[in-house]
Deep mutational scan, measured.
Amino acid sequence: MFYPNSPQTSPQLTQIPYGQQYAMMQRQIQQPYHPFATTEPQARLYPYHYQGPIQQEQGGFITQQSTAASPQYVQMRVTPVDQSIMSGYPNQTANGSSSSSFNYNIHPQQQQQQQQQQQQLRHHAMPVGSVPLQDDRYRKQLIVNYLAPDVTSTDLHELFSRFGELDGARIIYDKQTNMSKGYGFVYFCHAEDAKEAVERMSGYEFHGKWLKVGYSTNPLNIVPSNSSPYVHAGSRGAAG
């Protein structure tokens, strides 16, 4: 039997160049792979992502010199942007860049009308829970959420009447099932009393439920100042 490094198959040491006398086997001759043993700084910083320098080929596509990437890492192929796409944008300079302001050559009167329309939209648009300043009635009506099913309009009136005089209180019921929808409205005579009720009743436990109280901004629920107070009856038909 002959071994790869046996004296019968191995040459004389004098015939082997210096430095390879003890590297006779194939696994010894093959050098191990060192990912950080390279002179390129990109490979030292990113050993798993770097795959060699990027070269520009004919046709405008950018390719990489090395083989496919590892399945664990996804390499994105980048193509140059066609400058003709950006030619339609206004205020574009000769080098292809555009300024931040756009001039669509709008007539001054049209621009003024658009600004007025935007101001009107901001004036009428009102986020949930906010209180408008032009109508004091919005500051007097509250919406009470997360009410228990057994709470009546009379219970709601008695709960909030300790903060001040009320114009009314009612629970909203479903017309088909005649069941409470879980929320109601309270109408105060003074805005200061309503503000105190919002601050003190939010998070209050009532009939096993934690109440959420806020201003009601729905104009359909506003009680006119010259109208008669609501009837605080315990029956659902009268309260709904």
Rank of each mutant, 00 (worst) to 15 (best):
Y3A: 06
P4H: 04
P4S: 12
N5S: 12
S6H: 04
T9N: 10
S10R: 04
S10E: 08
P11E: 07
P11I: 01
Q12V: 04
L13V: 02
T14E: 11
I16A: 02
I16C: 14
P17S: 13
Y18F: 00
G19P: 06
Q21I: 12
M25R: 09
Q26E: 14
I29N: 00
Q30L: 05
P32W: 15
P32A: 14
Y33F: 07
H34V: 14
H34R: 13
A37G: 01
A37H: 00
T39N: 00
T39I: 12
E40D: 05
E40V: 11
P41F: 15
Q42N: 13
Q42D: 12
A43L: 09
R44H: 15
Y46M: 15
P47A: 11
P47N: 07
P47K: 01
Y48M: 01
Y48L: 06
Y48G: 04
Y50V: 10
G52V: 11
P53L: 06
Q56G: 03
G60S: 08
F61L: 06
I62Y: 14
I62E: 14
T63I: 11
Q65Y: 13
S66G: 08
A68R: 02
P71S: 11
P71C: 08
Q72G: 10
V74N: 01
R77L: 14
R77W: 15
R77F: 11
V78K: 13
T79G: 08
T79A: 03
T79R: 06
P80V: 15
S84V: 05
Y89W: 05
P90H: 02
P90C: 13
Q92D: 15
Q92Y: 13
G96N: 13
S97T: 09
S97A: 04
S99T: 10
S99D: 13
N103M: 15
N103S: 10
N103A: 09
N105C: 12
H107F: 07
P108F: 06
Q110K: 11
Q110W: 04
Q113F: 07
Q113L: 11
Q114L: 07
Q114Y: 09
Q114A: 09
Q117E: 08
Q117V: 12
Q118V: 09
Q118K: 03
Q118D: 05
Q119K: 01
Q120R: 12
R122E: 07
H124R: 00
M126R: 02
V131E: 15
P132G: 04
P132Q: 15
P132D: 02
Q134L: 06
D136Q: 01
R137F: 02
Y138Q: 00
Y138P: 10
R139S: 11
Q141L: 01
Q141G: 00
L142M: 00
N145R: 06
L147M: 00
A148G: 09
A148S: 11
D150G: 11
S153F: 00
L156N: 14
L159P: 14
F160L: 09
S161D: 11
S161Q: 11
R162N: 15
R162L: 10
L166F: 10
L166Q: 10
D167F: 12
A169F: 13
R170W: 07
I172E: 03
Y173S: 01
Q176M: 15
K181T: 03
Y183A: 02
F188H: 02
D193I: 12
K195T: 05
K195L: 05
R200N: 15
R200A: 15
M201T: 05
Y204L: 09
Y204F: 08
F206G: 06
F206K: 15
K209I: 12
W210C: 02
W210A: 00
K212H: 05
K212F: 11
V213N: 09
V213Q: 15
G214H: 10
N218F: 01
P219C: 07
L220T: 10
N221W: 13
N221K: 02
I222Q: 05
S227Q: 04
S227L: 08
P229R: 08
Y230T: 07
V231P: 08
H232E: 13
A233T: 06
A233R: 04
S235G: 07
R236M: 13
G237H: 07
G237K: 09
A238I: 02
A239E: 00
G240Q: 07
G240M: 14
